[in-house]
Design a protein around this nucleic acid. Structure first.
Length: 441
RNA sequence: GUCCCGUUCGUCUAGCCUGGCCUAGGACACAUGGUUUUCAUCCAUGCAACAGGGGUUCGAAUCCCCUACGGGAUGCCA
């Protein structure tokens, strides 16, 4: 039995495209599912646009997603080097074989490969039988002497013992070229598996790096959880067939296979991805949630490094379940850390639509001033007492008080909000609100 | 233009290979109601699809053909 060897062979461009990420993911899942080897090979034959910086974007993205490679940059392996720019001698050697076999000729300084012109019958692991006949000889060495994509791709797959080529459907038409080359080298064909493409959310065509949500690094920056991104990505074009959607990676690995991969292209859906992310977000332990939120809050200037950790923890504890997207944490918890916040006009309009909110607010403030117990239960008891003696409803106090101390009509649960802000902040914020209102009117 | 691939609710998909269990299931989104005496959740219900046309068959989402539409490839990019 031969061990499975799969590879991801990106060309570093400075971006890590979501489509590439899914191609890596499928390769990685297949390797992990079969106990095979996952190889990362860098296709940097196009000297002009390959920089070390671009490579790091790629490696960082893969690491963030948790897709580790068994052979490749930084980890080495027995089939190196893993940069095509360092494999010149190998390409020379293989090129020599083609020349010796009379399968090449030069024209205008470039080396062309003489195709056989025979129909190439591919047994694709996902699409089944695909027949295509290559019609034109193609360039394998450019006139500047550098080897071209088709040559290096095939040579490396042969030299590295790749058993399964899992790649986007955009390569399906190239496969007849590659099969010609494999045969010319007398090498056995790997199993090809062409996976469907990811189409852009709006408009026509496949997702391109300019599209909203196309870059892995954007998800990383905006605080998405990599587990959610990975989970969502594997649902684009693959299905476990039994309605499972949210699954731990371990389970995905166990269940992954070519059988569950669809033929049709899949349209990207940012809302479903967000839904999954929210779902994962809510499950985080408080400590992990805080560490996820911290950089976002620091970046937004909501907190600085000298933040009171105990207070931060209290605020996060009551905010976590309100967060839909990672960035929401800024809006939801922002007003806990500063006495200067905007009163949202929409929220204000809602509060002042009916009743006598300012009177209620005054009464509420007075109740707070005499309240001793600021635990959540204590605040609730205080509210009960206030309702009792004023003859009003709780609803008469909730909205206006929330507005006065946070400027919003939403946020953490009310009693929790009061409890965490505490007496001093509550009273002074309400006073500030009342005086700002009386000045206006 | 040519070649290759695809086509089930708005979106992701199950069902297709091995035709009847499909009055086509689930999820996101959306709508309505309920729970939460605030906010967010949560729960229930609803909306909504086999691209079209021909075959084959007792019977087709499922098999075959055509058309339409979508995607990709047609580079001395990868």
């Amino acid at each position: 039995m031969s061990e499975v060897r799969v590879r991801f062979a990106p060309s570093p461009t400075g971006f890590f495209h979501i489509g590439s990420a899914r191609t890596v993911l499928f390769n990685w899942l297949y390797a992990r599912n079969t106990g095979g080897t996952f190889i990362l090979r860098i296709e940097d034959t196009d000297k002009a646009r390959n920089t070390d910086e671009a490579l790091q974007v790629l490696l960082d993205g893969m690491r963030w997603l948790g897709l580790d490679w068994d052979e490749g940059p930084e980890v080495g392996g027995d089939y190196g080097p893993y940069f095509q720019s360092q494999r010149g001698a190998i390409y020379e050697e293989y090129l020599g074989k083609l020349k010796a076999a009379g399968r090449t000729y030069e024209q205008d300084g470039a080396v062309f490969f003489k195709i056989s012109g025979e129909p190439q019958v591919l047994e694709d692991a996902i699409r089944g039988r695909v027949e295509r006949t290559e019609e034109k000889d193609f360039v394998i060495v450019r006139s500047d002497g550098s080897p071209g994509f088709h040559l290096v791709n095939v040579v490396d797959d042969i030299a590295m013992g790749i058993t399964h080529v899992i790649r986007g459907e955009d390569h399906l038409s190239n496969t007849s070229k590659h099969m010609e080359l494999f045969k010319a080298f007398g090498a056995p064909l790997p199993v090809f598996a062409h996976i469907p493409l990811i189409l852009k959310e709006q408009g026509k065509g496949k997702m391109s790096k300019r599209d909203e949500g196309a870059l892995v690094e954007d998800y990383q920056k905006s605080g998405f959880l990599s587990e959610a991104v990975v989970n969502y990505l594997c649902l684009l074009g693959w299905s476990p067939k039994d309605d499972s959607e949210k699954m731990p990676l371990k389970e995905i690995i166990e269940r992954f296979g070519f059988d569950g991969i669809n033929k049709g292209n899949a349209r990207f859906d940012s809302r479903k991805m967000s839904f999954l992310n929210t779902s994962y977000l809510r499950e985080l332990s408080l400590d992990v949630f805080i560490e996820m939120a911290r950089p976002i809050l620091l970046e937004a200037g909501v907190i600085d490094v000298s933040v009171d950790e105990a207070y931060l923890k209290q605020v996060m504890a009551i905010s976590q379940e309100k967060v839909r997207m990672p960035v929401d944490i800024v809006g939801i918890s922002g007003t806990f850390f500063s006495e200067e916040f905007e009163i949202e006009p929409k929220a204000e309009a809602k509060v002042f639509k009916k009743g006598e909110p300012m009177v209620c607010l005054q009464e509420f403030k007075e109740a707070l001033e005499t309240l001793e117990d600021y635990s959540v239960a204590g605040v609730e008891a205080g509210m009960d007492a206030l309702v009792e003696r004023s003859g009003r409803k709780r609803n008469d106090f909730f909205g206006v008080a929330r507005l006065a101390v946070s400027g919003l009509d939403r946020g953490p649960g009310f009693y929790e909000l009061v409890s965490v802000l505490g007496k001093d902040r509550m009273v002074s914020r309400i006073e500030a609100f009342i005086s700002s209102r009386s000045e206006v009117s």
